[in-house]
């Protein structure tokens, strides 16, 4: 990763954020019917990120202790456990299973 690559990646990421905020946000504001869509996008996108990080190795499905840790985290989220308890449990269960 050369300095030019670092700059190119940084510029591309920043540009998408700015375009999303100024053009995407304006589009949603202009057409109020899309506001409901905007409120649902984080749920869909973040859940996709969670699924990808949990169920795959990045490119294909992958069985791993991480999934058991995430199952424990899911139960705790459902039971409305404190945030810190959720993440510590996920890490502890995952690390514990890998240590076996």
């Amino acid at each position: 990763m050369s300095w030019i690559v670092v700059a190119a990646l940084a510029a591309g990421v920043a540009l998408q954020r700015v375009v999303g905020m100024f053009l995407g946000g304006r589009l949603i504001t202009k057409y109020p019917s899309t506001a409901r869509l905007a409120s649902l996008i984080p749920a869909a996108v973040v859940a996709a990120v969670v699924a990808q990080l949990t169920l795959t190795d990045g490119t294909s499905l992958d069985a791993d202790a991480r999934q058991v840790g995430m199952a424990a985290a899911g139960v705790l989220v459902w039971r409305r456990a404190p945030f810190i308890v959720v993440i510590v449990t996920a890490a502890a269960v995952t690390a514990g299973l890998r240590a076996l």
Partner: peptide
Amino acid sequence: AGAWGLDAVFPAAMLAIIGNLL
């Protein structure tokens, strides 16, 4: 870092964050 279970921390945090939306 995987031996410490750190790779499970980020997805677990994301799940907790969207808990109310779910």
